[in-house]
Design a protein around this nucleic acid. Structure first.
Lengths: 229, 229
DNA sequence: CTTTACAAGTGTATTTTTTACACTCATGAA
DNA sequence: TTCATGAGTGTAAAAAATACACTTGTAAAG
């Protein structure tokens, strides 16, 4: 059943930049394309927006279909509309960025068919389309965002140590932070709850586990509080 | 010459939230719709993206056509894709926000046909489509942005006084600022150039005029400097 | 000519925040 | 018992943010 319009219409896609944190490094999830164009190139997960779904819903669906991920932090990033960004025809892509708890989800990818893998965010292979540009935009957004919004917690397990949290910030910001000052400032926010648990592994002193108090944060936000690390 | 596709395709538009600063208040430029749907309602300037133009180009063109504005600060804001945001059919709108020097441009609107007018950003009439939502998003963005990027200068004449600049910040942030502290901090950035000119009007002490040193700011930015007011 | 009204312009002391910095502690493995 | 390893902790100095009130220069009014 064909659909006909008086003027040509661009196709509409969503692409997702999925970040994870693992082995002390910021990672991004890519899939290998099975078809032309850019067959066998690595690309951001994504696909066409259906007529009856919102952009957000399309991003969530594609994420689920292509990478098996669900219940992730998702936020619209930017819309890319260069005329020849897709060699076939005009395609507008609404890019999203997602943050996932690497530990919670299956090791690499519970993928339907396509191959999926995590790459260090700063060391990706040549990407399809303008995806390198999208990734760059997402990295800038994440770096800017992490200081003003408590999104870092989305990348760590629900229970985490202060050292893990600091390592995350160091990886994303790309510079070392002073341990004592970092802890002081973080705890002063009074948004972490110390659990009655410690790490148990390893031949070293156990570390205190914390969780982020989402409820408290939301209450403060309504009063105009701004997270600042 | 009709165009046919296997699946239905959404139409693609751009909408612009144009901010100006005038009479001590933040204003937004609206146009009155001449046709259905929402005939006679006020709306954001905007229109369909053509097949051969980028999103940015479409925003600039619509701005020129509907409001006569050109050479304005323009930045992509967010893409709105709710399914029934346009009662006719599926329409995806890429929203932009623009900042104009109210003094530089024609008093209200060198409009082709439609009626255009400035409204206080916080006191707009009922708007067409989801434009109230877009405007709200733009206001939040502007409030957040003005503190970390020198976009305020885009709303003032090229030559301005410190009092004008402070009034702008007070209007956008919605709270009063201390005159001496504000000036101290602003001048400490060392990004303003004192001109050999003062205001001349009025029965009161003349005020020193300044301009923003764009060149210097860009040089600093390349070295990692972050504007912070 | 003098007075008046009005926004422009200016400095310091106090408080708060940020920074720099080095050792002891708890654990499991050797 | 010793060792290796990351966890955990406090203080002093510097920098930044804040609070705060009077004098100045101009044109208009008297």
């Amino acid at each position: 059943m064909p659909f006909t319009y008086l003027y040509p219409r661009a196709a509409l896609t969503v692409d997702c930049v999925v970040f994870g944190f693992d082995e002390g490094a910021l990672k991004v999830l890519l899939i290998r394309r099975g078809i032309e164009p850019f067959q066998n190139h690595w690309a951001l997960p994504g696909g066409f927006v259906r007529p009856d779904e919102t952009l957000d819903a399309a991003a969530l669906r594609e994420l689920q279909e292509e990478t098996g991920l669900h219940e992730v932090y998702l936020e619209q990033l930017y819309t890319f509309g260069e005329i020849h960004r897709d060699p076939r025809e005009r395609v507008i892509s609404v890019a999203y960025f997602a943050l996932v708890r690497r530990a919670d989800h299956a090791p690499a990818a519970a993928t339907d068919a396509a191959e999926a893998a995590w790459f260090e965010a700063e060391k990706v292979p040549a990407l399809a389309f303008d995806h390198a540009n999208i990734l760059k935009t997402a990295l800038e957004r994440l770096r800017g965002k992490i200081r003003w919004q408590p999104v870092g917690f989305e990348l760590l397990p629900k229970k985490f140590t202060l050292s893990q949290f600091q390592a995350l910030y160091e990886a994303i910001l790309g510079r070392e932070l002073d341990k004592r000052n970092f802890r002081k400032k973080l705890l002063a926010l009074d948004l972490l709850v110390a659990l009655e648990e410690t790490t148990t592994a390893a031949s070293r002193r156990p570390a205190q586990l914390f969780r982020f108090d989402q409820r408290k944060y939301q209450a403060l936000t309504r009063k105009g509080f701004i997270f600042d690390l």
